[in-house]
Design a binder for these strands. Structure first.
Length: 825
RNA sequence: GCCGAUGUGGCGGAAUUGGCAGACGCACCGCACUCAAAAUGCGGCGGAUAACUUCCAUGCCGGUUCGACUCCGGCCAUCGGCACCA
């Protein structure tokens, strides 16, 4: 047989075979253990990039490996198809977002198919199709029904370039996550999902996810930002209103020397009204409005503020303290007001020094100054309370408890927990998204669309230009409707939903994607969910992964799901870099997957991307590395085709009797490779080392030259093993070679090989002899010797004798099968 | 500033439980095949040294240990996340 490795023909052939025979179609099968393997579905930008290739190559190895190990594997793919790029492209190229999106999906799907991934395409989910977004809207209605979707007017993040509002999670360092424009604050009435109602569970249940990277859990914990303390009220001198503040340090309440409100605080104007400071206060508010959030919240920003002219009364000591407003207090955390304790809070300290406000020490430790004037910085450490009336002498922890108890007893305040997490702002003033199923009626107010009337169809004939309002608000036959409750003329909500809503439940839909009356069947999700292995980029650590967890908990609560967490194990893959930087058009360092697949084939592309580094680490793209993997597959091709005819006539016996040295060495390599590859894939996803073990097997086969007839079963076993082990990585070439060497059934339907422990036994092992930890000799000995025997052999070695002759042997350490260490003096 | 990760040849990386540092691949060098080149095959490849089976070497300094890339303490650098969160 003398054919060269024609990857083009081979890959097309096997992709067709798999497809024609529905190889990857799965059904619920109670007789097999299930395995739900999921890669994050892509946004259909039109082209596959290397990050996708890496993501899906990793996923496919896991899927094929699990299938060969007897699992019933669900491995679906779909499209996160709503979103801004489609709309922007529509505006730029005068093409409808739907057409643009569907064309992209078609293109990416065919690119994906050339990768040869084992997807069950019958389960394909496309979030912009009415049969899907019908149920995204259904989710909204359920949340609304359960008081978890609400509308409110507040200061929201506005991206002037995207012309829409953004959720908190979508603002990165004050800029829009998508387009990097500086985000502005706007007062708008918007729809929110009450994620804060789930803050504690989202936090607690992270502990139930041992299969998640610590890094991601930490990021979510920080994002949720739980802090314990108390909230209490202060009277305002000469007014009926009270001022409410949150603090984590109630033990320092006797150290309060002033109060601070956020400039946006609703009380500010009232407090300053008629005071000498009124003009100053108004000017400061104006200035803050003009300052971007980014500039204002930068930690190195200079603290500034003004006195309002009003005073509050400290409820614990009756003291009158001035109320200021300052840039360093934010309206959207806590109550938008703080008690300031300059002696024990660095921010308050900086501010007090600048404006000559007294600094009073109330926590004293042996190594902290006793007087405010002596302090160089605030003291936030442990100590005992001083200058605190009846509470003097208590330590920080005890003081906090006692102060809170006192406040609760006297109705001043209570213990509270505050979260940094905000509710999820889900309305978007854009066209290409799922319409929010709500109607506004003059008489009935906010009325949800009836379930039977879903989906609220996105109209097609629309002018897309964003004017800061949803394009739907200009489409009369969309917004004009009748009230679902009273039937009178009413107006539809014209905002659409954040696309993260769509991606918060798609993994449930994959379980039964054909359902038309319900979002998913209970039976199907009970069989498949939760996802056993989820794979995707770490950039979703907070956004998507927290929203999906929120949805899952909600669906559990309304008895739609039996699991409370959607993803049991999470693998966050690293980025694909070129010349040390993320591939991007602007840097001109993009390598196109299409080119690579055309030049070397999908098997090579997949192999390289898995070989170049472990999946969680960033991967440096190397054209020469790709070349090396291509060479390796060519070597495998030559090796196997050279043997194919011979071994197709050979049977592998149930047990191997007498083998000569060469054959035994080859069997040893075959079985160590099985063991290594299995452990590397199953145990720790180290595909790079799994591939090197496969290469070692191939090298061993290559240098095996002793072709006696009676040893051919050993060769056949080695070749079969090589193909089986390599098949999850580079499936097409393995299918072809598997067939060429006389096998009838597809390689990917074979059971995963199991190593034979007997083949791993060696008659001889090399042990290292050290003197005081330095290698001084190597001796080949029979396997299985006792410690004492090894010690004697080591001491008997000429070299060791010579090196130890005038030394005193203090002790010897023996590690069986490995080493002897002789400690001398 | 806080939290987390990472740091090993010319390069990507390996060493899984404290036991031979550098597996596997790339690059490079030599040889074979060839008129020649490519492809392929064989061999070499951390540094020092004339040489060795000698010494040095896993970011830096120190410690524990018979033995440390691995454990402990202190630093440095790079990357990522959070950042006036009261």
């Amino acid at each position: 047989m003398d054919r060269r490795y024609d990857f083009r023909t081979i890959e097309a052939k096997w992709q067709k075979t798999w497809e024609d025979n529905n190889f990857f179609k799965v059904y619920e099968d109670k007789n097999k253990p299930k395995y739900y393997n999921l890669e994050m579905f892509p946004y259909p930008s039109g082209h596959l990039h290397m990050g996708h290739v890496r993501n899906y190559a990793i996923g496919d190895v896991v899927a094929r490996f699990k299938t060969m190990n007897g699992y019933n594997v669900l491995h679906p793919m779909g499209w996160d198809a709503f979103g801004l790029p489609a709309e922007n492209a529509a505006i730029r190229n005068a093409v409808h977002p739907a057409r643009w999106t569907y064309a992209n999906i078609e293109n990416m799907k065919s690119q994906l198919k050339t990768m040869g991934i084992s997807y069950d395409w019958d389960r394909e989910v496309t979030t912009c199709k009415p049969d899907y977004y019908k149920f995204t809207q259904w989710m909204f209605l359920k949340l609304f029904e359960n008081n978890l979707a609400y509308k409110k007017r507040s200061a929201v993040n506005w991206c002037p370039s995207c012309q829409t509002v953004l959720a908190n999670e979508q603002v990165v360092e004050g800029c829009c996550e998508r387009c990097d424009s500086m985000v502005e604050k706007k007062q708008l009435e918007q729809w929110f999902f009450k994620t804060t109602a789930y803050a504690q569970r989202l936090l607690d249940d992270l502990d139930k996810l041992p299969g998640w990277p610590e890094k991601v859990k930490t990021m979510q914990r920080n994002w949720i930002g739980r802090s314990e303390g108390c909230q209490f009220s202060l009277a305002i001198e000469g007014r009926a209103e009270t001022l409410s503040v949150f603090t984590t340090r109630p033990d320092t309440v006797f150290g309060v020397t002033y109060m601070v409100l956020a400039p946006e605080h609703p009380l500010v104007e009232k407090l300053a009204a008629g005071k000498a400071q009124e003009a100053q206060v108004k000017a400061f508010i104006r200035k803050m409005k003009a300052t971007s959030d980014m500039a204002r919240t930068a930690s190195d920003a200079e603290k500034e503020g003004v006195f309002t002219g009003a005073y509050a009364i400290n409820p614990l000591n009756g003291e009158k303290v001035p109320i200021w407003i300052a840039n360093y207090v934010l309206m959207d955390y806590g109550t938008g007001a703080i008690m300031a304790v300059p002696a024990h809070d660095q921010r308050d300290f900086d501010f007090a020094r600048k404006y000559n406000i007294p600094i009073r020490v109330v926590i004293k430790s042996p190594d902290s100054p006793a007087r405010g004037e002596e302090m160089a910085e605030a003291y936030a450490g442990e100590g005992v309370m001083v200058n605190s009336g009846d509470f003097n002498g208590l330590d920080v922890a005890e003081g906090q408890k006692r102060i809170i108890a006192y406040m609760e007893k006297h109705g001043i305040g209570q213990r509270t927990v505050n979260y940094r997490l905000r509710d999820w702002l889900i309305s978007r003033q854009r066209y290409w998204g799922a319409p929010i199923p709500i109607v506004y009626c003059q008489d009935c107010g906010i009325v949800p669309v009836a379930e039977k009337d879903l989906p609220v169809m996105l109209p097609e004939d629309v002018e897309f230009k964003p004017y800061g309002e949803s394009p739907l608000s200009y489409v009369e036959n969309f917004y004009k409707t009748s009230c679902p409750r009273c039937g009178k003329e009413a107006r539809r909500e014209t905002d659409t939903m954040d696309t993260f809503v769509c991606s918060s439940w798609y993994f449930d839909r994959y379980c039964s994607p054909q359902e038309s009356e319900i979002p998913f069947s209970r039976e199907a999700v009970d069989y498949w969910m939760p996802v056993d292995q989820y794979i995707g980029g770490v950039e979703h650590a907070i956004l998507h992964l927290m929203y999906a967890r929120f949805f899952t908990k909600f669906l559990y609560d309304i008895n739609m799901l039996s699991c409370e967490e959607p993803f049991t194990n999470l693998l966050t893959q690293g980025m694909v870099l070129k010349d040390g930087a993320k591939m991007s058009k602007s840097k001109g360092n993009v390598v196109s997957p299409e080119d690579i697949i055309n030049t070397y084939g999908a098997d090579t592309a997949r192999l390289f991307i898995l070989f170049a580094s472990p999946p969680e680490r960033d991967l440096e793209w190397s054209d020469q590395g790709v070349e090396g993997c291509y060479r390796f597959l060519n070597r495998v091709w030559r090796l196997v085709t050279a043997y194919a005819d011979t071994i197709s006539q050979v049977n592998i016996p149930a047990s191997f009797a007498e083998l000569d040295d060469e054959a035994r060495k080859l069997r040893f390599r075959t079985h160590t490779s099985i063991k290594k590859v299995t452990e590397d894939i199953a145990g720790r996803f180290n595909f790079n080392t799994a591939i090197s073990a496969i290469m070692e097997l191939s090298n061993a086969l290559g240098s095996y030259s002793d072709n006696e007839e009676q040893d051919l079963p050993v060769v056949k076993e080695a070749i079969n093993t090589l193909l089986l082990l390599l098949s999850p990585f580079s499936p097409h070439i393995c299918e072809e070679l598997w067939q060429l060497s006389g096998n009838k059934e597809s390689v990917c339907l074979q059971p995963w090989p199991v190593h034979d422990p007997a083949a791993l036994l060696q008659d001889e092992v090399e042990i290292v002899v050290q003197i005081s930890g330095k290698v001084r000799d190597r001796i080949t000995v029979p396997a299985g010797l006792t410690e004492e025997q090894l010690r004697q052999i080591a001491l008997a070695s000429d070299k060791i004798k010579q090196l130890t002759q005038d030394k005193k042997i203090v002790k010897t350490i023996v590690v069986p099968e490995k080493l002897v260490n002789i400690v001398v003096k």
